[in-house]
Structure formats: C-alpha cells, structure tokens
Amino acid sequence: MSVEVVVGPLNQKVAHVSRDQYYSYAESLYEDGFHFASDLCGVDYLGNQTRVLPDSVTPERFEVVVSLLSHGSAERIRLRVQIPESDPHVSTLMGIYPGVENMEREAFDLVGIVFDGHPDMTRILLPDGWEGHPLRKDYSVGRVPVQFKGAPGPR
C-alpha cells in the first residue's frame, strides 16, 4: 500500500490516504499501536487556494482529518482523506475506533460528510430538521433566520 507520509509543523506526521485505503490504513495503524483516535473533523476547502498536497493526491473540496495517537510511543499521526463534493461519502472508522462516533456525527452535522456504516448518522448539535451544513464555506454567517421546530416563519 503506497501512502504518502509527510512531516508538517511541529514534526507532525501527516498521511494522505485515498478513500479506498482509508479504512485499511487505519486498521494497519491500529496494529502498529495507534489505539487511540483523538480527533476527527471535516474541512471544507472551497475557495482556499493555498493548500499544499503531494503530487500523487488529487485535491477535492472536502477533507476528513483524523488524528490518531499511540499511547505506547507517545506520537501522533494525522490522516487526511480527500472527499469529492459530488459524492461526500467515506467509510466509518467505528469498527476500529468506537470513540469516533460523536466526532463523525459532528462532521456529518456541520460539514455534511456521510460516514457509511455508522449506526446513527443523524445530526448531533443542530436540530433534526435543520437545512444545510453550517461549516461549509458556501453557508454564510448571519443570513439564515434561526430555525426552530414549530416556530412561526419570518414575517
């Protein structure tokens, strides 16, 4: 499996994986002692021209960033997965790291990335009937009236 691992600021290791490699690479990292998923979030790169990626990686609009931690060797590795806008799906990591449940729900809620195989892919912070995903760059701040279930609409 060819996965490009680059070193970022603070000597942080970053692995760029494709969507197909994502689950199996995380599994192999688990075997290597990375038993702890400390963070998972979605990022929207719409309009951001400054992203630096290795040549072998095709940039897409969304990214899922997972931070894994090894308690044994006290080191971190970060997985960055490119997710296309047309098909914002990626497989869930809950089979390896059950602790990402809330974080994946948050990434779905705020950025709109669907994690296939997640047992409870519902909104976690926003109300169930909310429209749109606020952390997307095309979701502007302060223009949408507050939405509440059963509330009267704007005048």
Partner: peptide, 15 residues
C-alpha cells in the same frame, strides 16, 4: 440497527 463489523464493538450495545 446494523452495527459495523470489526474487532471492537465496545460500548455499542449500551447506546
């Protein structure tokens, strides 16, 4: 509901 198959299903059954 369907649960993801994997080596670790810790905490799933209590949710």
């Amino acid at each position: 509901t369907s649960r993801p198959s994997g080596k670790s299903s810790i905490g799933h059954s209590s949710v």
